[in-house]
Design a protein around this nucleic acid. Structure first.
Lengths: 170, 170
DNA sequence: AATGAAATCGACCAGCA
DNA sequence: TGCTGGTCGATTTCATT
């Protein structure tokens, strides 16, 4: 599983395989083989390369948060105190807070944007209290998400034609 | 693949299976079988139920955005005009914008929070221009993400012990 | 809901272009 | 390096409890 995390290029076959598997990995290698017009072994060979190369970071099961009672999604802006220099430690502490899903270190006014899920209001308060207690955190401002209109971490599925062209080898 | 999207409860075995597969589905059913102390068929049986029940929404390949040159992540706040009533149409239009990954309809000051990736500054400008052009959109304010400290959509992995207890059937 | 046996599918290998 | 066909091992399915 090697990965140097730099951009690379893909031929149309790799892009087709990736696009398909990014949406649904529960498939017949035989079907894919026919659709693309390449033997099963060849697809398997390409898949192995894509995994070793770190393009595919994992095969994972996607779970529905609703079925676990996680009906609330909160986006919190975190401001750090001016005195603290680079806020790397603060960022790590935020990321280590139980329940926190995403932590982004941002440019500009706000220092961190934090996203987390909760089953009820008490849990929301708990997380915010933990964030405020972190060394270097000065202030927080939370927004409640009323509707998750789109939440789609897929990479290729969200790429425009132009973006796709930029990674094509042909 | 039935799903009524309501909360349900899980026994410890289901939770163990889900926790494992959420992180890595490149599994060895035999290993899982030994770890958990249940026959391979039984685990497969439970897996089928979890899929049909909509708890597992998909098995998918996770791709590294960096390898596709998507080195920039942007978070944009979108404000709608006061005249437009419920902003459902506006939300759908935002979600349909090419490149956009997440769209959240939020309470309070800001109306939508939009997250998208780009390969270069031109693409960022393109997306923002498209957002402003949408009917009902009044103003946008974008923040550049300098460091993606944590970005982990896994559900069970981010649940606290308390949250986990709340969905346990035992 | 779980089991074991039978059918099916994916992983790997040696060889080839 | 990328692909093929075949073999072995693993998984999915099914009848049965």
């Amino acid at each position: 599983m090697e990965s140097d995390s730099t951009e690379r290029r893909f031929d149309e076959i790799d892009l087709q395989i990736l696009e398909r598997l990014e949406s649904d990995h529960d498939l017949n290698l035989s079907d894919l083989s026919e659709e693309i017009g390449l033997s099963k072994s060849a697809i398997h060979y390409r898949l192995n390369n894509l995994k070793e190369d770190g393009v595919i970071t994992a095969i994972s099961a996607d779970l529905d948060p609703q079925r676990f009672g996680l009906e609330m999604l909160v986006i919190t802006e975190v401001y750090v105190t001016h005195e603290s220099g680079y806020a790397a430690d603060t960022g790590e502490a935020i990321a280590a807070t139980t329940g926190v899903q995403d932590v982004y270190y941002t440019m500009g006014d706000v220092d961190f944007i934090v996203i987390f899920r909760a089953q009820n209001r008490d849990q929301i308060n708990d997380v915010i209290a933990k964030l405020i207690a972190i060394d270097g955190v000065n202030e927080t401002s939370s927004t409640f998400v009323m509707d998750e209109i789109k939440s789609d971490g897929r990479v290729l599925a969200n790429m425009s034609d132009e973006m796709r062209e930029n990674v094509r080898s042909d």
